[in-house]
Each structure stands twice: as C-alpha cells, then as structure tokens.
Design a protein around this nucleic acid. Structure first.
Lengths: 203, 203
DNA sequence: GTGCCGGGATGACAATCGTCATGAGCAGGT
DNA sequence: ACCTGCTCATGACGATTGTCATCCCGGCAC
C-alpha cells in the first residue's frame, strides 16, 4: 500500500507548519502541499492530485465549505476533511451538503486527525462524535431561507433601510422577517437573534 | 547555560501538542507543563517554576490577559508571552498593562515563537512588528472609561433596562453613554459600535 | 478663581424597531 | 379543489433607541 498524499489548507501559519511536521512523522502519510488561502486550493489539487484535502473553515480568499463544494465538481475524486475550531452544529449539515468526508475538531489530539485521514481514504466517513451529538441535540434551523438570508445580512449592515436596498426588498418586509426570526429564536432583539443563530451555525 | 523551562496554556489541544513537539526539537527549550484552562495556570506556575509562560488569550476558565496580571503579582518573577490569533491593536496596550514581555501571532512560523522565548528570557521584549505597527496606526481608544464599560456590558445583555440594573445607573445615563460612544466610533447604532470597538480590542 | 472635562441624571423629541393584522400570489401536498 | 406554508407587501401601534439641551457635582489645569 502506497503513501497517502495530503494537501493542507489552513491560514494560521504556526498551526499549519506544526501539523505538517507531526503528520510527517506517520509512516503512511505525506503532506504534498500547503496553502493559507482558500482560493488557491483548487489549483493545487489539480496540480498535486492529493488523496485527501484538509480544510479550515475560516480562510482568506474562500471559506472551507465553499472550497469543498468546488472540489466536489472536479473530474476526478478527492476526499475532503474539515478541520475546525468550533463545533457549530449547523456546520455539520453544511459540511455534509458540501460533500465532505470528515470533520475533525482542533480541540482533539493530532492522532485523531491521522485516524480520520485513514478512515476517509478507506472510503468511510470520519465525523467527530461531539459534533455529531451536538447536531442531533440542536436539531436543524427553524428559520426559512429568507429569514436566514435577512438575518445574515443584518449581521454586518446596520439599519433596515440599508438591508432593504441590499436585498431588494421593501423595508416592511425586512422588518417582518427579522421579527419572525427573533421570535423563532426566542431572542429579545435583532442582535441577540444574530448571536444565537450564529452560535449554532445557522447563518 | 541551562535549558529554558516553558509552560504552555492554550485551549486547542491539537495546536498545543503540536507546538510542544516542535519546541522540544530546540536544544535549549523544554516544555515542563501544559494546560487548556486559564484558571489552572497559576497553580502550575507555583509548582513547576517555569521561566516563560505562553498564554493564549481565549481560554476557558480565565482569559490570558487576566492570567498575565495574576502572574505579575507572584512572589517570584515569571516572563509571559501572549500567543494569539488576531492582532487586535488594543490587545497590545492591554497586554503591556498586564505586564507581559512578548506578543506573538499564530500567523507566524514556529521559529518566531522560539525566537521570542529566547528574547524575553534575555530580558528583552518581543512584540510582533505587525501588531506594533497596527497599534500605532489605530491609536488608542477615544472612549472614556464609562463609555467603554457601558458598551462592553451592552455586548451581552440586551435592553437598556437590563444594562441600567447591572451597572446601577439610570436608564437615561446608559443611553447617553451609548449615544456618545456610537458617535465617537462613527457607528450608526449600538450593534455597529460594539463591532467596531471589539475589532480594535477596545472593549 | 475660572474654565474644562468626566461622571451622573432628567426630560423631550424624532427615528427606528418589533409586533400584529391583513392581503395577494405561488408552490406543494391530499 | 382545497389547505398549508413561504414570499412579499402595506399600514398601524407601542416600545425602544439615539439625539440633544440642560442641570449638578467633583477634580484638575492655568
């Protein structure tokens, strides 16, 4: 059995180089490439043809979940594993929809990452059990598509006026969506609703 | 010259173990202890007597800056280095006030961490130049103490009523402070003001 | 002493926000 | 054919928010 070829996409240089060093200690693993930017991943995958791509979620250029979707549409197969800090339950659903094979928390020892790599290469899925349980507990988002969109847009921009322009909706409609989102999330106001939805990965 | 004894406090297990492995490759460095919780640091320092303590800012139990302040009041001297993800300019000021000797970004290679450790042991300061420059560019917070307190409290709690109770201030006064903070930060509302201040480390 | 600034408070006002009722159009399911 | 649920909109209402003027008090600088 030959070596497993790995590409690592992670924006924290210190973490990235450390993981490379440690994975390289494993006999059967070899890191063939690395990058700190999401938008460089596809090109590197085409050039290097790794067996597995390790993706951070928060990256400059393009986020890890988008990269995973991108890689799903290649002419040749690539396994992807999300390596992330927080177990936002909603991330799991999004990750599975993006076609990833594994999800590992940075909270865990390196050994669990190596293990996950071997599992997905063997064709299995490797989902961190904590995240899986949390996702089951939380259930899925009670928000409709538009409610989510509006709430997500409200995260950055300030007033309802600006939101309605950006979403090409009437100001009243924006208010209605925000109001129903606030109620569904048992929040007292917009800011709290955003916090809650964000913490569960529903945005 | 003897070895430099290091204690590492960092909540991401994967990162923590990786850094330990890599620092141990350096001849003159030895990691004598590790923890993922801020409130365990002081006890470990008393027991292990490290030369340098590496502190993450975001940790369960107690944040890194508070730990640094704690360590400053010990009967014996300990050097502290903050190891953090983001170069919030305000962090530098807070870190220096907390008596830390160094500040390194996780964005940099491990070598820069080793270098910083040696510098602070030699009695020098080791401040990442990016952070130093950013802090100079941003300047210091335009907020008064109370404005900062009120804005900071507004981050979690929702309505002005709750804030006024928690701060034992009249509701009107709370509104006034929030209003002046919003204007000083060129924000359009409370939420935006919190975002701005938070992103610069002024909270 | 006379300003000036920050902390604390009050009252008034306009703008925004959150809620609710209501309606129309359009999909999907029975 | 009917009901349900989502989208989009309008209008009205009360509560909250953000702004402003104005006041008192205590330091601190000049």
């Amino acid at each position: 059995m030959s070596e497993i070829r790995i590409l690592l996409a992670e924006d924290q240089t210190m973490f990235r180089s450390a993981v490379i060093s440690l994975l390289s200690l494993e006999e059967d693993l070899v890191v063939v490439g690395e990058t700190g930017r999401g938008d460089e991943v596809e090109g590197l995958v085409r050039k290097l043809r790794p067996d597995v791509v390790l993706l951070d979620i928060e990256m400059p250029g393009l986020d890890g979940l988008s990269v995973a979707r991108q890689l799903q549409n290649l002419e040749f197969p690539v396994r992807t594993i999300i390596v992330t800090t927080f177990g936002r339950p909603g991330y799991l659903r999004a990750a599975l929809e993006a076609g990833v094979s594994g999800l590992v928390l940075k909270d865990k020892p390196i050994a669990s990452l190596a293990e996950a790599i071997r599992k997905v290469v063997a064709g299995e899925q490797a989902i961190d059990s904590e995240v899986a349980l949390a996702a089951l507990r939380e259930g899925s988002s009670p928000l409709t598509d538009r409610e989510r969109e509006v709430l997500s847009a409200a995260r950055n921009r300030g007033t309802i006026q600006e939101l309605s322009k950006q979403l090409t909706l009437s100001a009243g409609t924006v208010r209605n969506y925000l109001s129903s989102a606030i109620q569904k999330l048992n929040a007292q106001n917009r800011a709290e609703a955003i916090d809650i939805a964000d913490s569960k990965g529903w945005l």
